[in-house]
Design a protein around this nucleic acid. Structure first.
Length: 553
RNA sequence: GGCCUUAUGGUCAAGAGGUUAAGACGCCGCCCUCUCAAGGCGGAAUCACGAGUUCGAUUCUCGUUAAGGCUACCA
């Protein structure tokens, strides 16, 4: 077969050679060990937590090596496009402090860099040229078979084939078409998909080094995979090879689910005579499903699969990134312990330290990481971050807390800015329910507005009403507590924990019960931060009013 | 069905041919204490199973099992 003639038959309007493009995008001028990496999501949904996970690897590695981190939009699946998804993905990346140096920046926004276009659907001429080249060297052929319309059909046919023959035939029937047959099909205007003419031997293997998985032995590819779909758009395989070559990618970070198709991709690189990039196949973040099985985080079922979920919930950026870093490099935890005040960005991230099994998403751990992070912030930082969040996600609360910023800060500063700060906030959405009583959100109308479970109502009222008489907002903490003890004693409560424990029947209760009654009157809850601080922040009249109000129960 | 990958407590995991098998989250208990949170101290809980190699295997090899992935003109 005259492959050059075939190439011209299939792609008569391609006038450029691959050398034209190879020369158009010369090698980048970068330091010797600099890595060029990319995030290349397809705009078929919103940015996945797994994307953030792998983006982190690329962002950290390129920063460390003074390389380039770029964004390429892989919009070759026209059927599944979701409007605006690319823009949101880019914005999310920036939000999480992983702004790319180069590439796509959103729909209708200018692209950055000299290796574009960074949107695959705008590179169709380039792909066509490379496809033509493969035909011209006899490594690709047209397939005129009718394509299966949906996944169910494909699965059904495959099942049928397995049952009939026991194997799936890799070599495509159309690879045996003669030039004349092809010519006739073209004349008949039959659409075709271009397929790789695989030269692999199923019994041969080759050695391969993956940055995460280490040394592997891989079977040669034998599949005549599709290089260009019948609509003229290449699927991932060809686009990956062409783009990452032209854009100078040195390390490809992608999920482990790509590992089985690696040998096919390498065969394409090989057919072109291109040097493939290094690969890092990452584990996939999973969760436990209803049946107790591990499964991939799913966009449809799991809210935490969408990075926007964490924003809506009010998890700080640093919390989420630190959590992901925990999954990525297990020695991060020790580093964090030894460097409590540094940013996670100062950690020396290493690709080789990534574990090779699929981690489960653990909210407990995320919350812990986040509580630690928030506990180290000062009141101004907390205020700033909280109000920024509330401004978008809880406008009503925003209006309340910004009415008097200093007041809000004093609330947020209870047990903060000290060596052993409170760690009770994991996300901003919790502040409202935890501190409602400090923000006019606690207005008891009846008994049920207080948490009075297992509480003796008579004692409760007695304590609160007597406390009105002794409360003085000018008392310091010691005097304040002494007065409570004194009152407790007068009312028949114990003021010594040990004495009380020895003979509880001799007392109405302990001084802790007295404090609990006051706490319930002021906050409605049995649990709260330091009562004295709360009294200090509430105005005197407010304290008195709340104590008086217990009459309603 | 075929192929690929993985297997250390509930979760994240360190680890090495000989260890009392780190650490973190979570859980439980105690201390502190006006409650909670924090802090301090302590506890329960792990090498998937079966062979082989070896003086010795959780670690190496081979099987088995389980889970995940791929097997699309999706990425």
């Amino acid at each position: 077969m005259d492959y050059k003639k075939l190439a011209d038959l299939l792609y008569p309007d391609v006038d450029k050679t691959i050398d034209y493009y190879l020369n158009k995008y010369p090698k980048r001028n970068l330091p010797e060990n600099a890595e060029v990496m990319r995030i290349a999501p397809s705009p078929t949904g919103y940015l996945h937590t797994g994307h953030a996970y792998s983006a982190f690897i690329s962002r950290a590695t390129t920063k460390k090596t003074n390389g380039v981190f770029y964004f390429r939009l892989e919009d070759t699946d026209q059927k599944r496009l979701i409007p605006n998804a690319g823009t949101i993905a880019y914005d999310m990346l920036c939000y999480y402090d992983m702004k790319p140096d180069e590439g796509y920046t959103g729909d209708n926004r200018p692209q950055i860099g000299n290796y574009g276009d960074y949107i695959q659907s705008k590179r169709l001429d380039i792909y066509k040229c490379f496809a033509k080249y493969l035909v011209s060297i006899g490594r690709a052929f047209p397939c005129f078979c009718e394509k299966s319309e949906n996944k169910e059909d494909i699965l059904f046919k495959r099942q049928e084939q397995i049952e009939n023959s026991g194997t799936i035939e890799d070599k495509d029937v159309c690879r045996n078409l003669t030039y004349e047959q092809i010519e006739q099909n073209i004349k008949d205007k039959k659409p075709f998909a271009l397929k790789l003419l695989s030269c692999g031997d199923i019994n041969k293997t080759f050695k391969f080094h993956d940055l995460i998985k280490g040394n592997r032995e891989i079977r040669e590819n034998t599949k005549d995979i599709v290089l260009v779909k019948s609509n003229g758009i290449p699927p991932y395989s060809l686009a990956h090879v062409v783009d990452d070559t032209l854009m100078g990618t040195t390390i490809v970070v992608r999920g482990e689910e790509w590992f089985p198709s690696l040998s096919a991709h390498l065969e394409i690189f090989n057919a072109f005579g291109f040097k493939p990039p290094k690969y890092a196949h990452t584990p996939v973040i999973c969760k436990l499903d209803e049946n107790g099985n591990k499964r991939k985080l799913s966009k449809r079922k799991d809210p935490e699969a969408d990075v926007r979920y964490f924003i809506e919930q009010g998890y700080p950026v640093d919390s989420v990134m630190e959590y992901l870093l925990n999954l990525l490099n297990s020695d991060f935890e020790l580093w964090r312990k030894n460097n409590p005040s540094l940013s996670y960005k100062d950690f020396d991230f290493k690709i080789e330290k990534i574990g090779s099994n699929n981690p489960m998403f653990d909210f407990n751990k995320l919350n812990d990481v986040s509580k630690n992070y928030i506990s180290k912030l000062n009141k101004d930082q907390v205020y700033e971050k909280l109000t920024t969040w509330a401004n978008v996600y809880d406008k009503n609360f925003y209006n309340i807390i910004t009415k008097d910023g200093n007041y809000t800060k004093s609330v947020l500063n209870i047990d903060r800015e000290n060596p052993k700060p409170r760690k009770d906030i994991a996300k901003w959405s919790e502040v409202k329910t935890k501190f409602d009583y400090m923000f006019d959100l606690f207005n008891p109308k009846s008994k049920k507005d207080y948490n009075l479970e297992d509480v003796d109502i008579e004692k409760f009222k007695e304590v609160c009403l007597s406390y009105i008489k002794v409360y003085n907002e000018n008392d310091d903490k010691q005097i304040w507590f002494n007065k409570i003890k004194e009152m407790a004693q007068n009312l028949g409560y114990a003021t010594d924990n040990k004495l009380y424990k020895q003979n509880p029947q001799n007392f109405k209760g302990n001084v802790s019960d007295v404090c609990m009654y006051i706490r319930i009157a002021l906050t409605g809850k049995k649990d709260s931060p330091d009562l004295y601080s709360i009294c200090q922040i509430l105005k005197k009249q407010d304290v008195i009013d709340r104590l008086k109000k217990v009459e309603i129960v």
